[in-house]
Amino acid sequence: MKNRKICPKCNSTDIIKVPGKAGAYGVGNNIQTGWSNFSAVLVHRYVCCACGYSEEWIDKEDIPRLKEKYENA
């Protein structure tokens, strides 16, 4: 859905991206990798406006930080 901009459930092309964010006290769509909001990895949502299906994606450049924090957890 992220790359092709087509819903895998209903084949609609009416897709929106809801950007991840990190707010006060960890509020938002993110994964904390440290103690501050600056360490948060943002999780972006892609939503089909036709059927409501959604997917969550993390930017590739943020994956090494997640692996460092959670790979052996």
Rank of each mutant, 00 (worst) to 15 (best):
P8E: 01
N37I: 09
N37F: 08
G20Q: 05
G28W: 08
I15Q: 06
Y25W: 13
C51E: 07
R45P: 01
N29W: 06
K2M: 10
I6M: 09
N29I: 06
G20W: 04
L66A: 05
N3W: 05
K60V: 13
V41W: 03
C51Q: 08
G34C: 07
E56F: 14
L42Q: 02
V47A: 03
A40D: 14
P19Y: 04
D59M: 12
R45G: 04
W57L: 03
E56H: 13
K17G: 07
F38S: 12
I58G: 05
I31N: 00
N11S: 15
A24C: 02
Q32N: 11
A73K: 09
G28I: 08
A22E: 00
S54T: 04
E68Q: 11
Y46F: 13
R45I: 00
P19S: 06
I31K: 07
C48W: 02
I63T: 02
K5D: 15
N29R: 09
Y70M: 04
F38N: 09
C7W: 00
C49A: 04
A73R: 10
E61V: 09
R4N: 15
C10T: 10
K21V: 13
Y53M: 10
N11W: 11
C48T: 01
K17R: 14
I31R: 03
W35L: 14
C48P: 04
I63V: 12
L66S: 03
F38P: 00
C49I: 02
K67P: 02
K9W: 04
T33A: 09
Q32T: 11
N30S: 10
G52L: 03
Y53E: 12
I6S: 08
E61N: 12
G26K: 05
Q32M: 15
S36D: 08
C48F: 00
A24L: 08
R4K: 12
N11H: 15
T33R: 03
I6A: 08
C48D: 00
K17S: 09
K17H: 11
G34V: 04
Q32H: 11
S39T: 08
E55F: 02
C7S: 03
L42R: 03
G52F: 02
A50S: 15
I58L: 07
A22Q: 03
S12M: 10
I63K: 09
K9R: 11
C48E: 00
D62T: 00
E71W: 12
D59E: 15
E61C: 04
P19A: 07
C49L: 14
A50F: 02
G34S: 05
D59I: 01
Y53A: 09
I16K: 14
K67Q: 12
N72Q: 12
A24R: 06
E56P: 01
P64T: 03
I15K: 02
K60L: 13
R65K: 14
I16C: 07
L42C: 04
E55I: 05
